[in-house]
Amino acid sequence: MLEARLEQSSVLKKVVDAIKDLVQDCNFDCNDSGIQLQAMDNSHVALVAMHLKTEGFALYRCDRNIALGINLVSLQKVLRAAQNEDVMTLKAEDSPDALSLVFENSENDRISEYDLKLMDIDQEHLGIPETEYGATVKMPSAEFQRICRDLSLLSESVAIEATKEGIKFSCTGDIGKGAVTLRQNPNVEKPELGTTIELQEPVALTFSLKYLVNFCKASGLSNTVTISLSNEVPLLIEYEMEHGYVRFYLAPKIGD
């Protein structure tokens, strides 16, 4: 059986908020490393991989691997009933047909109990190879969100070029073109406001801005975002949490 307690319901609420517009039905795989999820959007262009590690739970017990088939819209309806500061306890039997969610407020004078029906989701699981990326860029998540939003008003694609000078986002559309260049600037006082680039080799790839804007819904999970690029491979965008992460992979647009 599974019994997992989060001190703050906001952890799960924010994760579901971040991915619910990209994927609808997914398996939350519970095992001794914590709760993991991997799902692709309908067009198989983007993939989200999430991991809430065991250390992030006030209490975590999972006797055997359990796959919780969940519709994220339904889960979000139940999570709306949890206040951010409520303690949340998830419980499920082995091969469960429902997930029990209990929310307790900090004054300990309100306890809410919900059961969410589970689904049988037969989803192909993709093997994501360990990759040495040509360029790894760390920047403020708000900065990346602003760039994607601004450029998505001009075009549906963005060319991303990483060189030793910096990272350049450029696009061309019907009304004109635009480009944003961020130079390496490891802000020493406030590192989370800096932009750092590790470059193994220069890279240049084109991606759909619609997906990048969607991924940026996860900006609330972390002040910084790490963007990993290599020529001819999917882009990796990672939002690190204290005890876990949400990662997005996006296939590039090929040929010009």
Partner: peptide, 14 residues
């Protein structure tokens, strides 16, 4: 014009 690749071109099912 560029064409949108799919992840199945890069990641194999396990």
């Amino acid at each position: 014009t560029s064409t949108q690749a799919r992840l199945n071109d890069f990641f194999k099912p396990v």
